[in-house]
Design a protein around this nucleic acid. Structure first.
Lengths: 119, 119
DNA sequence: ATTATATATGAATATTTGTTCATATATTTA
DNA sequence: TAAATATATGAACAAATATTCATATATAAT
């Protein structure tokens, strides 16, 4: 059904071709979307924010955020799978900390954008 | 029900307090989560990626991504609301372009993280 | 004025996802 | 060894969200 299509004269074939050539490949887009998905949840952002300040065990995080251990543990699993945090087991406790400093940078740029937006 | 709680000895009150003091406020966390939500969808990332290369009308983007105008238009609305793109109407067409350069930075850091992860 | 085209949008649907609940596992203590 | 504690996880449920479909609006062309 060509009601979906625009007249040829409307399309900018040169621009479309240029974009087609220069765009990132689909695998990277997929990975990127999954990475940002991690930052799109308030609970995970709060966990990352807390770990940016101090290494913490699951109990600490639950207490700090006022949420159940289960909920926190599920989210920590997501963060582990995305290689954003690392876990260190000591006795019955598991201590979590950030794995690299991209996290801080990503959050900083986000904050910048939000602050500029308000102007 | 205190089965949710840890023994007091397990909690690190000093660290918890420090984190509580230094953490970003909830409004910013909320705004941040909404910003990253935009980047968490492949279609929106592809649109942003295309606009990073060239200004394009809705028809161009639909053609480039092989998706319906409706779908693209819905996503462009999200991008407009988050002030990530701007629209310029010329005749029947609407040309979209990026609103600021945080977008490029956010994507770049994301790509960096993904590349390092694979090592 | 009427028709066609480009874009926008509300509603419905299907999928994804965060939390809860129940339970499992691992470690420590009695 | 048995009981208690810290964490992890599968399944169920509820909420959020991307696309489709139908339709509306705005501009241009006839």
């Amino acid at each position: 059904m060509d009601y979906l299509d625009c007249e040829d004269e409307v399309l900018h074939q040169d621009k479309i071709e240029e974009a087609r050539k220069k765009m990132m490949n689909e695998d990277i887009i997929f990975d990127l979307s999954n990475l940002y998905k991690v930052f799109s949840d308030e609970t995970r952002l709060r966990i990352l924010n807390a770990l940016l300040i101090s290494e913490l065990c699951v109990c600490d995080i639950s207490d700090l955020l006022g949420m159940t251990h289960s909920s926190i543990s599920h989210q920590l699993k997501v963060l582990r799978e995305m290689k954003l945090v690392k876990a260190k087991k000591v006795g019955k406790s598991v201590y979590y900390s950030l794995k690299d400093d991209h996290i801080q940078k990503i959050i900083e740029i986000g904050v910048e954008h939000i602050n500029e937006k308000e102007i």
